[in-house]
Design a protein around this nucleic acid. Structure first.
Length: 115
DNA sequence: TTGCTGACCGACG
DNA sequence: CCGTCGGCCAGCA
């Protein structure tokens, strides 16, 4: 069998999407945490940029569960609406106030730790 | 092809 | 305390 069971991520983006999809509902993570899990801690920017490309993906990428290190919804403007991200999070039971995730530290999901 | 940008993070002064 | 800069990598003109 020639090989690869899974295409092992042709792109760095695929890796990011895979991690983001693993985030359980009602939980949130940060760009840096994903980057660190992928082994590229310094490339946290690419994680955010991957989210931008995620919009082109047919698969549902819960990018709304990804926030910055402070728990602020930095990318809320990229969902097609400034309140979409907030509503999605609240729909999953995550309280968002002042563009910030309430009890972010409690809801924080570490991909390298939880897995 | 080269160069710029980008939803971040951490360090430094 | 707050402002600024560097780093990382991939997509796009």
């Amino acid at each position: 069998m020639a090989g690869r069971l899974k295409k092992k991520s042709d792109s760095f983006f695929e890796n990011v999407y895979d991690v983001v999809r693993m985030i359980p509902a009602g939980r949130v993570t940060s760009y840096g945490a994903i980057a660190e899990y992928l082994g590229t801690r310094g490339s946290a920017r690419m994680v955010g940029w991957a989210m931008n490309a995620a919009h082109t993906q047919v698969n549902d990428v819960p990018a709304h569960r990804v926030v910055n290190r402070n728990g602020f919804l930095t990318g809320r403007h990229h969902f097609g609406g400034p309140v979409i991200m907030k509503q999605l999070l609240e729909s999953e039971g995550v309280s968002v106030e002042n563009d910030r995730v309430v009890r972010f530290e409690e809801l924080f999901w570490n991909p390298g730790k939880e897995l």
